[in-house]
């Protein structure tokens, strides 16, 4: 599996890019001990003018490079944690629906469909606005709008796995139903979940940045979306203030998408053939 993954050029580019972002996020406090809010130079310093400030300074004379580095922390944190929370909702719900079928399935799927019908970005805006913008409400809002596809995927996988012979064997061996679900069926659904999760982190990062752009970010955390939102009104005079955070978002999201596709090809080789012919 690793061999197939590592021979995929796109996926390896993704890994390198993502590692770079992670390293920057981790060493941000060492690189810029003053934090992202500190004023260090005159405002509106253009990029590449001074070596110490390669990306220039913002409207208040804060170092854009430091803001970018700290922004990486928020993006990665929100992306990762909200995906985990979405998995915590979607996996059990989908597993129960797929394994027990009948009324359980019917109920769980109506519930999932309901959430899928609601325009998800609009719901995320409403949730964050009402529960006040902070990291917890942002993470929960993103998780609440992202779990339905997980539930559907897990349900479909569980339904196909539970008909296999080794599940019959486990039943004959006297294992209880919940135990079969957890120890026999679920482990066989892990690889598609991993693929979906890596793509969900990317979507969550985009969602977080969009919320921050609208002013619904955590006021105590520097975020790429906030940087673009704050620079929106000065775009005519200071293009770099919106340009670089956008590039940072694209690099991170692209890296995760590339990794997700690489994992998909590596974990489900016969499926990926179709798309490539």
């Amino acid at each position: 599996m690793w061999k197939r993954f590592s021979s995929n050029i796109g996926a390896m580019v993704g890994v390198v890019l993502l590692l770079a972002v992670i390293v920057i996020a981790v060493i941000a406090p060492m690189l810029y001990p003053g934090g992202p809010w500190q004023m260090v130079q005159r405002p509106f310093l253009p990029p590449f003018a001074q070596d110490a400030y390669p990306f220039g300074t913002d409207t208040l004379g804060r170092n854009v490079a430091a803001q970018l580095a700290y922004g990486a922390q928020v993006s990665l944190l929100v992306g990762l944690v909200s995906t985990l929370v979405a998995l915590l909702i979607g996996v059990p719900l989908g597993a129960l629906a797929g394994f027990y079928g009948g009324m359980v399935d019917e109920g769980a799927m109506r519930f999932t469909e309901f959430f899928q019908t609601i325009p998800n970005f609009a719901l995320a805006i409403v949730l964050v606005a009402i529960f006040q913008p902070n990291l917890t409400s942002i993470i929960l809002a993103i998780a609440i709008v992202s779990w339905p596809p997980v539930a559907r995927l897990v349900r479909a996988e569980v339904m196909s796995v539970r008909k296999r012979e080794f599940v019959d064997a486990a039943t004959l061996a006297g294992l209880s139903k919940p135990r079969i679900l957890v120890t026999q069926v679920l482990p066989n659904t892990v690889s598609p979940i991993i693929v979906m999760a890596s793509l969900m982190v990317a979507t969550a990062i985009l969602l977080e940045s969009s919320l921050s752009f609208l002013g619904l970010g955590d006021p105590n955390a520097m975020s790429w979306g906030y940087m673009i939102g704050a620079a929106r009104t000065v775009i005519r005079s200071a293009w770099w203030l919106s340009f670089f955070p956008g590039v940072a978002i694209i690099i991170t999201v692209l890296a995760l998408n590339l990794i997700g596709e690489g994992l998909n090809d590596a974990l489900n080789p016969h499926l990926s053939r179709k798309g490539r012919a």
Binding site: A202, L206, S209, S210, F213, G225, I228, R232, I235, R236, W239, S242, F243, P245, G246, I249, I250, V253, L254, N257, L258
Partner: peptide, 22 residues
């Protein structure tokens, strides 16, 4: 397509303003 897929909508909008209007 992969690149557009990773681009935040509002950022693309701002850059379009910058290039095509400003």
């Amino acid at each position: 397509a992969l690149l557009f897929y990773a681009t935040p909508l509002y950022w693309a909008a701002l850059m379009a303003v910058l290039v095509f209007s400003v």
